[in-house]
């Protein structure tokens, strides 16, 4: 509610003061609440709703007043762009380290942000799996099955979606690891896979909707957590999750936006919040929301829900995100090249 909106004062009081109070009918304002803005990507709404409630509860035991944790969700690249353009995020929890690197490059957070928190600043990870129609009618078992002729694939656009980049890189790495695999074969493989793509949505959520709600396509390439959410939402009787022989460690990463926390005086709070993401209670929430927890003990408790599979890393196969982006996703990169060839 508007009554909750106490900061950032300077701009609002000047423009809206009376109007806001009048319209919202706010009574007495208490001492201003402490606020923390977490700018995140699409599929984390349910996750942070639960974690935030736990954090607020813990925070209130040792602090006076109110703590309001604000959330902003959107496509990962778009969210990073907004932070660079001045969205006052105290922390960012985005789909790929690359998006946070962009924020670091703009000078808003330290270049070494990844080493400031455990597990490469990824409190939870995920992987890339397939979702098929119930009964798996096209007999899809592995990556080469979805590059076959006659299979219709749904995956978002790697130019706009963080999740889609993980999908693309996992496919590439699979082809590379096949007997006799090399860069040229990987390129051919990924090209035939993207020839099968029927709808290229801008984000992971859009792709899930296209596949599950509109009923388009034989297979959806998706985050593991998003696949489970899709099954919960659209019915486990209609959809099926298939684990390929090999996938990728998808590392949604978190970081404090130093420039904003310094200005807003939320430095310690942001640190405490990010550290809390590694707390067993938050890790348990992540596991229940189908994100793979980084805490070994919590992971062990949920072992059966997270099948073991061979997983490569972007650092190991592609030499890091900056390099992967430069070669594959930048303008004129491999993805642009195979998209151009697609029409021929």
């Amino acid at each position: 509610m508007l009554c909750r909106q106490t900061g950032p004062w300077t701009s609002r009081r000047a423009v809206l003061g009376a109007a806001a109070a009048g319209l919202a009918g706010c009574g007495e304002r208490g001492p201003p609440a402490t606020r923390l803005l977490n700018v995140s990507y699409d599929p984390t709404r349910e996750l942070y709703e639960e974690i935030n409630a736990l954090f607020v509860e813990q925070w209130k035991q040792t602090h006076e007043g109110d703590l309001i944790l604000e959330m902003s969700h959107g496509g990962s690249g778009r969210q990073a762009r907004a932070v660079i353009d001045g969205l006052h995020a105290d922390v960012v929890t985005l789909a790929t380290p690359f998006d946070i690197d962009a924020i670091a490059q703009a000078g808003l957070t330290a270049p070494d942000w990844r080493s400031r928190l455990p597990n490469n600043s990824a409190p939870y990870t995920s992987t890339i799996v397939f979702v098929t129609r119930a009964g798996n009618p096209k007999a899809i078992r592995d990556w080469n099955d979805i590059a076959r002729d006659g299979v219709s694939v749904i995956t978002p656009n790697p130019k706009t979606s963080g999740g889609a980049r993980w999908n693309y890189l996992a496919a590439w790495a699979f082809a590379l690891r096949q007997p006799g695999g090399d860069e040229a074969r990987a390129r051919d493989f990924v090209r035939s896979l993207y020839r099968n793509v029927q709808v290229l949505d801008t984000g992971a959520r859009g792709s899930m909707t296209t596949f599950a709600q509109r009923g388009i396509g034989d297979v959806l390439i998706a985050w593991e957590n998003e696949a489970h959410l899709g099954l919960d939402e659209f019915g486990a009787v209609n959809l099926e999750i298939i684990y390929p022989s090999m996938s990728i460690v998808a590392e949604p990463a978190v970081a404090k936006v130093d420039a904003n926390t310094a200005r807003r005086g939320t430095d310690d709070l942001a640190d405490a919040y990010l550290r809390f993401l590694y707390d067993p209670s938050a890790q348990d929430v992540a596991a229940r929301r189908h994100f793979r927890p980084s805490d070994a003990q919590i992971l062990a408790q949920h072992r059966s829900e997270f099948p073991d599979l061979a997983m490569i890393t972007v650092d190991g196969v592609f030499g890091g995100w900056a390099e992967a982006h430069r070669i594959h996703f930048a303008d004129g990169g491999v993805f642009d090249q195979i998209s151009a060839e697609r029409g021929q």
């Binding site: 950032p8 300077t10 701009s11 609002r12 969205l87 006052h88």
Partner: peptide, 13 residues
């Protein structure tokens, strides 16, 4: 001057 316009109600207006 610590004024924020974009990403606030001011920007929306």
């Amino acid at each position: 001057h610590n004024i924020q316009v974009i990403f606030t109600v001011t920007g929306l207006v």
